[in-house]
């Protein structure tokens, strides 16, 4: 392998990593704050990707550049459905997350996830939407060109745009968590939900808001992923997005949005380098999971966790 292709793979890895970081960032919030390991996260992201395509192709012809924002807003609504169907009864009133509650939430989010998977497959089976299609035929052009050249690597503008929005999302959420009173409350619930109740905030409401935000971020991450890959959106993407999200969240540290983003970059670059060395995507993915298991065993708090 020569130096130029290594640079190319690292650059592509950084871009992929930024998108994956954005996809995973919603998970770190719900996991870190509510201690709910959301197994529906990957499915929600895939749903976001499909919604972006649906908005563009099958309904109002929304410009893909605006899709992430529209999908974020739809995500809030879906988050409410998610919370009231799968989480409220199990974790809404739970003051502390016992192992039993944790397991039940794991299973119920899992049930919600496969229901989404089933609905998407159904819609595809009935021919309402097409898979492997994405934004085929659409390209972001600047000055008549669809790509720019950075360090000898051709990079599509649409991917750069997705990365820019991903960074924007991370910064916005990080600011929200640090500067606004709601953000502070959410972070406080992660530390001591009873103390938050004493200050007059209803922990149940905080859990609801956290779920809404986390879900909206998952869907928006999926929409960014749709712009990033351009085509090839299908329900089974979940099998890549969900496990990678877990790897990234654990790597970045639970509850740390910024950490998740950096974790995403690390995983992206690792996959890029492994791919450059072996020529097999599968080995790159397998490496990520080996990293996950080792991390869980040796430093489950991650790089930026408390």
């Amino acid at each position: 392998m020569d130096a130029a292709s290594l640079v190319t793979n690292i650059l592509n890895g950084l871009i992929t990593g930024a998108i994956l970081g954005a996809v995973a960032s919603g998970l770190t919030l719900i996991w870190g704050v509510m201690k709910v390991v959301n197994l529906a996260h990957g499915h929600l992201a895939v749903l976001g990707a499909f919604l972006a395509v649906i908005l563009y192709k099958y309904t109002i012809g929304l410009n893909p550049l605006l899709a992430p924002f529209a999908v974020f807003i739809i995500g809030v609504v879906i988050g409410a459905i998610f919370y009231y169907t799968s989480l409220h009864i199990i974790v809404g009133k739970a003051e502390t997350m016992t192992l039993k509650v944790e397991m039940n939430s794991l299973l119920s989010t899992f049930g919600f996830g496969i229901a989404i998977y089933g609905l998407l497959s159904y819609a595809i089976g009935r021919g309402w939407i097409a898979q492997y299609e994405g934004f085929t035929g659409w390209a972001l052009k600047v000055g008549g060109k669809t790509y720019t050249t950075i360090l000898g690597t051709n990079i599509i503008y649409a991917k750069l745009y997705a990365v820019a929005i991903a960074v924007l999302l991370i910064v916005a959420v990080e600011m929200f968590l640090r500067k606004t009173i709601w953000g502070l409350t959410i972070r406080a619930v992660a530390q001591d939900s009873r103390a938050v109740a004493l200050t007059g905030y209803n922990p149940v409401t905080v859990k609801l808001v956290t779920t809404l935000l986390s879900t909206a971020m998952a869907l928006m991450g999926g929409a960014l992923y749709a712009i990033f890959v351009g085509s090839g959106i299908n329900p089974d993407l979940e099998h890549v997005l969900a496990p990678l999200s877990f790897v990234i969240v654990v790597l970045g540290g639970l509850g740390s949005v910024l950490g998740t983003f950096i974790g995403g970059l690390i995983i992206g670059v690792t996959n890029g380098i492994v791919y450059a060395l072996t020529g097999e995507t599968a080995i790159g993915l397998a490496t990520s999971f080996v990293i996950l298991i080792l991390l869980l065993l040796w430093k489950p708090t991650g790089l930026f966790g408390r």
Binding site: L292, L296, L297
Partner: peptide, 27 residues
């Protein structure tokens, strides 16, 4: 090794274990 983890961490680590073998099998 993975059994040292509890609850959700154990669940996720086993998912990881499954995917490692799955991806190796595709080769």
């Amino acid at each position: 090794a993975v059994l040292r983890l509890r609850g959700a961490f154990f669940a996720i680590a086993t998912i990881g274990m499954d995917y490692v073998i799955l991806y190796l099998e595709t080769l």
